[in-house]
Nucleic acid binder design. Structure first.
Lengths: 338, 338
DNA sequence: TACGTCGATCAAAACGTTTTGACTCACAAC
DNA sequence: GTTGTGAGTCAAAACGTTTTGATCGACGTA
């Protein structure tokens, strides 16, 4: 706080050169004599000079900062399981950005006029909704953007990393079928992001291919565990109870397992359970729950890489980068042979 | 990308006023006639004008951005359990910052000249080491700082949030004693942050008070699970095996539980286990492991609040804000009465 | 009438950099 | 002896805002 910040002008004065010389000395953009350079660095050190990032980026048009916008609504409220998903994605992106020596900023709600406006060279938008309003805004401002998972209404954006669901969903459903499931139900989420939309499609396609009717119901991501339990109870008690349920989130999967246990429905023998996200929850539940892992770490790594390439002026890639989810088969879908 | 960015000058031209009038219209710092204001906002909308954050903060000296520096070395490498700690803290701070409509930036290594320099009004430094070099650098630059947990060598900094270990450590150790533990060993971490330093002190103090010898060993946070297992095996096989172990991290706690199981040492009857961090791991291990939860969510909330107060020019508080860790007693330390 | 006040606007300065064009030497090449 | 070249330096412009002082009517008050 002690008085004014020290500027390049102070350094120049102390080293008895012009400010442009100081600038050149630091950037190396022009030759500077060894003797002068020495004087300048000494002056800078003595004064504790640090270039002002705002001034620098105003001039250069670059801030060295990448923005991050997470679209899941569950960013701010939600169960611990959702928080885990959020935290894991944020942590992964941050880790990768740090490794690349670039600043990563969490962008406050971009169209709230009261929110701070931040300088960024580009922006990663993760899990946009259909026709996502924030993504629209970012595009309108001509901010270079990379999406993690596409906006289902804008699948054409080439700067994207996306997950390849169909093979993994197929493998999961094939597996269930081999375990003698004859009535596989899908409890899908209600948010209109690619994860919900495309896993649902994959399920439908598999059903068509296998000549079985699709059986889909929705379970909103916004439900509390109590509310969800209210819906699941009757489903498991009904005469036409499915013999396998694939549910969007792993916390609901764990919840179904608990409800099943309470109603005396045996897992996996009478009911198999699997989910489209993984978490510590599903790993350590009893029985452990089969889950598709969204591979956030790789998603994050590729997204940051793509973003930096785009900022550096690279050509748009032909196609999005594709990452494969990882399937973890666990006890909840492994029936003992009899 | 289409051509140049649109500036306040373009808006002024289009609305046929001076640029200062445009600025006043947006900031409301001087009265502007309704008719003019209308023309200006229309022009701004048509052009898609957004003020340049760098120019603004250059002029005002404020960026609306808070920096975040996480000191645990395990930020970038480590087991999934450490990643969970990292992720949870990052996620909590980010969530709180977003709620407060301020930008939050992960600061790339502050004294790496190749790393991007970022504009920030202040900086949160979490879990600094003793005499932390990064904290020193931040202070040298007169960047307003708030620490999460103090630097053990600089306990006097008033702008801090810290955890109140002694009562909770006492409660844990009292509990173990009541469960008939007579030889409680502490496996402390080796990093010199407040968490390690102060929990160790608390343990020592309790031992003094209770007239039992302190038994402390170190288990470096940097060890892989394999390496740690190498050390733990002999400890559990030795004739003077303790009947209770308190270990710093929850992943090592879970590891000890596994080693114990492999060696036929019954938990909790022959060996009780507890840890100074909590995680999904310890919650769902079998048996579930007693743990102290660092309460990252509250830590984060208070830290952001303090930071914003400091930036807004508030007086330095008398004392640091104190948060209480939460103790979760679980099966690993609950002996069945016999 | 003279005077202060207020609303509405403008022009200019300032924030702290980077970059560009120009200048001065010294030295080598023709 | 001119010409060219490169090293080393400086002055000035530019980046896009916000803020301050000034101007100019209109209006109410002494």
């Amino acid at each position: 706080m002690s008085g004014r910040r020290v500027t390049i002008r102070d350094v120049a004065e102390r080293a008895d050169v012009s400010i442009s010389t100081v600038s050149h000395a630091f950037s190396g953009s022009r030759p500077i004599s060894a003797e002068t350079r020495e004087r300048i660095t000494r002056a800078a050190n003595e004064l504790g000079y640090e270039p002002n990032p705002s001034a620098r980026s105003l001039r250069t048009g670059r801030s060295g900062i990448v923005g991050l916008i997470l679209r899941p609504r569950f960013a701010l409220v939600g169960t611990s399981d959702r928080a885990e998903t959020f935290n894991r994605l944020v942590g992964s992106v941050a880790t990768e950005a740090l490794r690349r020596k670039t600043g990563l900023i969490h962008v406050p709600d971009i169209d709230d006029p009261r929110a701070a406006k931040v300088p960024m060279d580009g922006c990663i938008v993760a899990h946009p909704y259909s026709g996502d309003r924030v993504l629209t805004e970012v595009l309108r401002r001509h901010i270079p953007v990379v999406t993690v998972e596409e906006d289902p209404e804008r699948p054409e954006l080439p700067w994207a990393v996306r997950l390849d669901y169909p093979p993994v969903v197929d493998r999961l459903l094939d597996h269930l079928k081999r375990q003698h499931a004859s009535d596989i139900m899908l409890l899908t989420g209600t948010e209109s992001n690619a994860w919900n939309v495309r896993t649902r499609e994959s399920y439908r396609a598999w059903c068509r291919t296998n000549g079985v009717p699709a059986r889909i119901d929705e379970l909103s991501e916004g439900l509390t565990h109590e509310e969800a339990a209210q819906l699941i109870g009757p489903l498991l008690a009904a005469p036409d109870r499915p013999d396998a349920i694939v549910v969007a989130t792993s916390d609901f999967a764990a919840l179904i397992a608990r409800v099943a246990a309470a109603q005396g429905v045996r897992v996996p023998d009478e009911l198999m359970i699997a989910s489209f996200t993984d978490s510590e929850h599903s790993r350590t539940a009893d029985p452990a729950i089969t889950a598709m892992d969204l591979n956030h770490e790789n998603l994050a790594k590729e997204a940051v890489e793509l973003m930096l390439a785009r900022i550096a002026g690279a050509e748009a890639p032909e196609k999005p980068v594709v990452i494969s989810p990882v399937l973890h088969l666990r006890a909840s879908t492994l029936r003992s042979p009899h």
